[in-house]
Simulated assay, not measured.
Amino acid sequence: MVLGFFTQAEKALAQEMLSKLESQLTPDMFAGQAKLLSVNKVTRLLEQSYRLAEAHQRERRPGFVKRAALANQFKWALLDKGYPKEFVDVAVEGLVVALAKIAARKAPDAPAP
């Protein structure tokens, strides 16, 4: 697959993000122990993993396709590790929003009509 070759950096980044997240927030923590997880803690841990993607975005300035590939790789990595689907959906949505904010800041201003 040609696209696979061009998204190797995104695959590696998704795995790095997963490793960072998994070191402090394992899938087992969602099974019956939800009371131990605070929203603030989960949000803080997700934001830490997003910082890797944000740094990648600033450094390499990937386009829409590569950002989508990263989000998709991150989603499947989380699901493969056994994270609940609801958590995965929130985590991926947060990643997309974080990357979109950076892309919007880097986009050239549109000419005035």
Rank of each mutant, 00 (worst) to 15 (best):
M1A: 11
L3S: 05
F5I: 05
F6L: 13
T7G: 00
A9I: 02
E10Y: 05
A12H: 09
L13V: 09
L13P: 04
Q15L: 09
L18E: 04
L21Q: 03
E22L: 06
E22V: 04
S23A: 15
S23L: 04
Q24F: 05
Q24D: 10
Q24P: 01
Q24H: 09
D28A: 09
D28T: 09
M29S: 02
M29N: 00
F30V: 03
Q33F: 15
A34W: 03
A34D: 03
L36G: 10
S38T: 15
V39L: 11
V42F: 08
V42M: 08
R44C: 00
R44S: 14
L46W: 01
E47T: 11
Q48R: 04
S49F: 00
L52Q: 07
L52C: 03
Q57K: 02
R58S: 07
E59Q: 14
E59M: 07
R61V: 15
G63F: 13
G63C: 13
F64W: 07
V65R: 11
K66T: 01
A68I: 00
A69N: 08
Q73M: 06
K75T: 14
K75C: 14
K75H: 15
A77V: 09
L78S: 08
K81R: 15
P84I: 05
K85S: 15
K85D: 14
E86C: 00
D89H: 10
D89L: 08
D89Q: 13
D89V: 14
E93T: 13
V97H: 03
A100H: 02
K101V: 13
K101P: 01
A103N: 07
A104L: 15
A104N: 15
A104T: 15
R105K: 15
A107P: 07
A110P: 11
P113R: 13
